[in-house]
Design a protein around this nucleic acid. Structure first.
Lengths: 133, 133
DNA sequence: CTGTATGCAAATCATTTGCAGCTTA
DNA sequence: TAAGCTGCAAATGATTTGCATACAG
């Protein structure tokens, strides 16, 4: 939603690289706190606030997608920046992107049955991925 | 998810009645804070913590469904306790329940294309309801 | 009566922010 | 050298909790 301040030049810093690489590698939802803990050893001077700021930046760039855990924390996955949804494995936490072509017929049904004109939708799928089945 | 302690007897108190009636009447997502403000005048001794505790209770009973706003706050709507989704009007905020029969074919597609076995899904729809179209 | 619920105030906890010093381009 | 970052510590703000009192059944 929020884009970085227009005209601002972004720097590829060590912290940003480390956080993005971790997210690309893990392919599962991670909270700011867990990212901080996972990177702390290799990057002793990393600050939690930097993790928060980087996540906010990556989300604004569409590189990462956030959601709220039941615990009240926010977590993030690295993902494509096109409109899509996530298939989240309830066994290993692995997250895959899913396109939403099939949603079109659902939209038609909604309009016919409830006169609701569907503009947007946010979906999260929970199940078992190819590896965990 | 969390159920009230088993064997515990629930009282129908004034605060609980007021909160539930408000939610039933409004049919839109309300935060604890806004519920508190809306009820404050008619119920001068109502405490914000009571609103939080009541919302937690109602959610555990399946009477109410919560979600996280972008602002970081949680909000709640009164809704059916069966498995369903919400169609949220982006104009007036009105929330209707939607069943998920159409999701079945989407599940089949997911399995065929990505070998992902869909167990659960959470969906939120945004659009314009019959009144706002 | 007795178990529950409530109000109030204090405590938590995730997230945000101000600012001076450090980096990247 | 700048414009951008970062670490640190302090500030926020939503939600939770302890406890003594009030209330429902």
């Amino acid at each position: 939603m929020t884009s970085p301040k227009p005209g601002r030049v972004l720097y590829a810093t060590a912290a940003r690289r480390a956080i993005l690489e971790l997210l690309k590698r893990e392919q599962r939802y991670l909270t700011a706190g867990s990212i901080y803990l996972l990177l702390k050893d290799a990057n002793p001077k990393l600050a939690l606030s930097t993790v928060y700021r980087t996540l906010e930046l990556l989300e604004s760039l569409g590189t990462v997608s956030g959601r709220s855990e039941a615990s009240g924390e926010s977590s993030y996955v690295h993902c494509s920046d096109e409109h899509h949804h996530h298939a989240l494995c309830t066994v290993c936490g692995h997250v895959d992107d899913v396109d939403c072509a099939a949603m079109e017929q659902f939209k038609a049904t909604l309009l016919a049955k409830q006169s609701f004109l569907l503009d947007e939708h946010s979906v999260e799928f929970y199940g078992r991925c190819a590896d965990c089945r």
